[in-house]
């Protein structure tokens, strides 16, 4: 049900853009105003979230680690699993951000005959996530060819590598295949496994369907409908140079792509997609475990009025002496 409603929402958005994109006065709204609003929400929202997060106090280190802590010289320390210095933390973060190392350790638990609980590895989630995220990054960088004039060399090189196999015309991008395959796998994974389906929320399906819609509309425009790329670039350049135009050749199919992108951008800061920024702020990953080597003082400690024993004894000295109790002084 949650899957169907989120699919219906994405389809409705696409259909709305498709039909409203055929009404001449609304093309400026779909092609210029909504994208501007969306990118503004995205930039402001992401900044706001990160600033709010940065204000959270993290006074102490949280070692949740499977590695040996750095201690005596003759005990081998896990410099990567349990880093005690910045280089180790950078390496651990890099592996986390670029290769999703903790997802690689994903396990499955199964109840077998007996009853016996069996744990095993489940690498497919990691593989699907890796394929999806890297494809999305490559596609994002490739799209810079529409926003930058002249097109940077790096983008051209990436374009060539991505279309390396020279299949069909226009050349098939490898990432177009991998992103759609990975998204379909991630979607199927949620739908197939009853446990995963049980914990899946509307937001989980919505993000998947939205990005799938974005990818499929792009694939449709490039390989099947073959839209006017030059006109699209004029629109994109117009947006980034603040002299927006919606050329006549831009079809409502492209506006579907643009509206799905705008939805993604505007939705981004308020959703689980903010893990893009959040991963860098994971306290269990980005802090060196040096609790026992360095003194960490709680920075918001304030002077607390205390009443130590010595003062108390001085105050009641006579009474304690009269009662015959032992005194320190």
């Amino acid at each position: 049900m949650k899957a169907l409603s989120s699919l219906a929402l994405v389809v409705a958005l696409a259909a709305l853009a498709f039909f409203l994109g055929r009404v001449e006065p609304l093309r400026v709204v779909l092609g210029v105003i909504i994208p501007y609003v969306a990118i503004a929400i995205f930039l402001a929202g992401v900044s706001y979230k990160v600033i709010v997060w940065s204000l959270s106090p993290v006074p102490f280190r949280i070692p949740t680690s499977c590695g040996q802590q750095k201690s005596l010289s003759w005990i081998k320390a896990g410099w990567l699993e349990n880093p005690h210095s910045t280089p180790g933390v950078v390496a651990r973060m890099a592996l986390e951000v670029l290769l999703f190392r903790s997802l690689f350790r994903n396990t499955k638990a199964e109840l077998r005959e007996g009853p016996r609980l069996i744990y095993g590895e489940r690498r497919f989630l990691w593989l699907g996530a890796l394929a999806f995220h890297w494809s999305f990054l490559v596609i994002f960088v490739r799209h810079l060819r529409f926003f930058i004039e002249p097109v940077p060399r790096l983008v051209m090189v990436l374009d060539r590598l991505d279309s390396f196999f020279q299949v069909g015309i226009p050349l098939l991008y490898i990432t177009d295949v991998t992103i759609v395959a990975a998204l379909l796998y991630l979607l199927l994974r949620r739908l197939r496994d009853p446990q995963v389906r049980y914990i899946s929320l509307f937001a989980d399906y919505f993000a998947l369907f939205l990005i799938l819609g974005l990818a499929l509309s792009g694939v449709w425009m490039r390989y099947f409908a073959r839209i006017d790329v030059v006109a699209v670039k004029q629109l994109a350049i117009g947006l980034v140079t603040f002299s927006p135009i919606v050329p006549r050749e831009v079809t409502s199919l492209f506006l579907v792509h643009l509206i799905l992108l705008s939805t993604l951008l505007a939705y981004f800061p308020f959703s689980k997609l903010m893990h893009m920024g959040g991963i860098f702020l994971s306290p269990t990953r980005n802090l060196a475990n040096n609790n026992r080597r360095k003194r960490h003082v709680n920075p918001w400690d304030y002077p607390v009025p205390v009443h130590p024993y010595q003062e108390w004894e001085a105050e009641f000295h006579d009474k304690i002496a009269a009662a015959g109790l032992p005194l320190e002084k």
Partner: peptide
């Protein structure tokens, strides 16, 4: 954190700065 945020915003808005510096227009 703020340096990272600024780098991110810089990368996202890079086409804007680039086209502004290069004087690109939407003429095609």
């Amino acid at each position: 954190i703020y340096t990272g945020l600024l780098v991110f915003l810089g990368i996202i808005t890079f086409p804007m700065w680039h086209d502004w510096a290069a004087g690109t227009t939407s003429r095609g």
